[in-house]
Design a protein around this nucleic acid. Structure first.
Ligand SMILES: [Zn+2]
Ligand SMILES: [Zn+2]
Ligand SMILES: [Zn+2]
Ligand SMILES: [Zn+2]
Lengths: 165, 165
DNA sequence: CTTGTAGTGATATAACATAACATTTTTACG
DNA sequence: CGTAAAAATGTTATGTTATATCACTACAAG
């Protein structure tokens, strides 16, 4: 009898979080070198700020951190860095929160689904991104061409459930 | 051999649109009477503004219309009316657009998926709202309690595809 | 009629995002 | 190297979306 694998989602599970940060930065470094992209100081620091938490941060939260460190003080600085990181799949945007979160499975562009805690903004990223067959069928039948699908499930993460019980 | 039913989604299909407006208002009238809710002038007009198009309108778009008609000129007027209509399931919020759309299947609270045209903001509402089994399983296994799921597919509606070909 | 509740009016401000243009840094190439 | 083009950054201003707060009004219940 095989032991059931623990496949709880990163973000809600206990884990060695320093590895998330270092691994995420490493992947970005390698990817950028390979694709001749410039992971500048601001961009790299923006990524590490997001990697340091598995929660969604607003652009102005990021900007505040950058400002403290003398890396820029005006909104475009943060939005440019976030834009670069989004384009290259290192971070994702959480539409419900107008906020940004580091990718948990970096290395390739992809289109994940998210589980978002409405209390603490913790975010877990699922690799499952496809819509249900029914929605796809309805789209096809009505002639709608789907280009991108956003799936965001909101609720309570394990620790906030305990805290609020 | 049974004829294939045309189940193209309202919003992209040709239809008698005056009926959408009158039916939507009627449902709201009845529902509010039954539940002792007050569908005031501003609320009712806000609903009809959204019913008049199957596209998503921003709060400030709605406000502009209300202002023209002397029904209110400051943001809270629109946001309060939209809030009431959202709470009672007469309209939905499109997160990707920070915009609002009248419900196509009014009468009960529900949690639909949307097909959103990125060119013209036309929105079709699908009754299919459940996430994929896999996402639900992942949530359960990691102890996350899903309360609400947003599914928004963005792409091109039939007429915009023709226009851009 | 009076008292509580729900709804509105009005002002201000918070939060999120981009346009536009000047300047600096980096890269590419002769 | 020197220099021109491209990419990134600095800076100012403004646009867009949303909420807090407090005063006032309408209205239903007792
Ligand atoms: Zn981590
Ligand atoms: Zn939480
Ligand atoms: Zn219609
Ligand atoms: Zn369209």
């Amino acid at each position: 009898m095989r032991k059931r694998q623990n496949c709880s989602l990163l973000g809600f599970a206990q884990h060695d979080h320093k590895r998330c940060v270092s691994a995420g930065l490493k992947v970005a470094d390698v990817y950028c070198q390979k694709h001749k992209l410039r992971l500048t100081t601001v961009r790299r620091r923006t990524l590490s700020i997001l990697l340091e938490s598995h929660t969604a941060l607003g652009a102005y939260d990021v900007l505040a951190r950058l400002r403290e460190e003398g890396l820029g003080s005006e909104p475009p600085v943060a939005y440019r860095a976030l834009g670069f990181l989004l384009e290259n799949g290192f971070i994702h945007r959480i539409e419900r929160l107008n906020a940004y979160v580091a990718c948990s499975h970096p290395g390739a562009l992809h289109n994940p689904a998210f589980l978002i805690c409405s209390d603490c903004r913790a975010v877990a990223e699922s690799t499952v991104a496809t819509t249900t067959g029914t929605l796809n069928r309805q789209a096809r039948e009505s002639g709608f061409q789907i280009e991108h699908t956003t799936i965001e499930a909101e609720g309570q993460c394990p620790s906030c459930q305990q805290a609020n019980q």
